[in-house]
Design a protein around this nucleic acid. Structure first.
Lengths: 191, 191
DNA sequence: GTCTATATTGGGATAGAC
DNA sequence: GTCTATCCCAATATAGAC
């Protein structure tokens, strides 16, 4: 009896899960297909049944990350938009995020993306636009006079997380994150 | 007659110049020693007379970039500290910087650094600390109540440049940079 | 769909001539 | 100090058995 297509779908998702985790923490060149497949307990031969190349995997992992990010979650019933945004920002600007396993690829792959192909750039750009869009929606268009004001906020939180990850000194990282949490609230008119 | 040690010093600097440009635009893995040496019109064999390994080259290029950055320049006589800071920020948050040949490695290598060795991390961290220090000095300690407030500013400008580089849409990049220039002035109490 | 074996390439590093 | 030739490993991708 052949494997079901559902089973294949499952394998695909496991591969994406592993790929996302590995790519975002190590970057394209420091992840091998072998490593990804080991990570999800499959073998390399199986890989080519799901993806044509490593580049395609990278791109799909990026999409996958965007669709499963906390930002894409539905707002919990009990919270107002701005309370929920506050929760999201605190999560983003936290040690758990900086050192965690499911980081935001916008921050973790910011400079890695440049060497990838055009399609991947577009995928990244879509994710970035989406992030701005979501934050703008939660903040409310009345709070943010100009849609473009959001850009400085997202630049800041992405930059903070990207830089923090490279710094050894956790004390300093805490200061950076804390400084940005405070500044983010100011930018959003105090929430 | 043997080559002078001055000649060797010159070669070293040319190598660093090329390495800095190539590494910061392409990242560690997408630059080969061959490419660097070609770029400065030397051959690969000569490389090992100057550096022990590619990693060492990367680290030295990072130091070199820090020591020759515009931020490290002496303030021109005619300008006040805050005017000079204003010039520096506008230069940092400009299209020329984002698409130029001598970019800030703090932004361009933010996520590339993570995969490097400990010594390289330290070099990056020193550069980051130095950037904060310099901006704080120019801004004046009276303007910035808390030294840590600078962190949100540097996160923002580094993040903006890092993200901008990956986006194809120049219109959008302009908006991001402009949004950050405006926000930077607000953060520094209007300059 | 999964696995093993293998072809192939790219690039870091070394040795030795000049 | 610089160059050429060479070794060698790591990793992508393919072919074919099961």
């Amino acid at each position: 009896m052949p494997y079901s297509s559902e089973h294949k779908q499952n394998s695909r998702e496991k591969i994406l899960q592993s790929a996302y985790r590995l790519f975002s923490t190590k970057g394209f060149d420091n992840v091998t297909i072998d490593r990804v497949m080991q990570d999800c307990s499959l073998t390399r031969g199986a890989f080519y049944g799901h993806f044509r190349s490593k580049s395609e995997l990278y791109k799909e992992a990026l999409k996958f990350a965007a669709s499963t990010s906390k930002l894409a979650d539905i707002k919990p019933e009990g919270l107002s938009s701005r309370e929920w945004l506050s929760v999201l920002l605190d999560g983003y600007l936290s040690l758990e995020h900086v050192y965690g396993e499911r980081p935001c690829p916008l921050a973790f792959l910011a400079t890695d993306i440049v060497s990838r192909d055009k399609e991947t750039h577009k995928t990244y750009a879509r994710g970035y636009t989406r992030m701005n869009q979501l934050i703008l929606d939660y903040a409310g268009r009345d709070t943010v006079k100009n849609a473009q004001d959001i850009f400085s906020l997202t630049s800041m939180i992405i930059g903070a997380v990207a830089v923090s990850r490279t710094l050894g000194d956790q004390q300093q990282v805490q200061q950076i994150l804390s400084s940005c949490r405070q500044q983010a609230r100011l930018m959003l008119g105090g929430i």
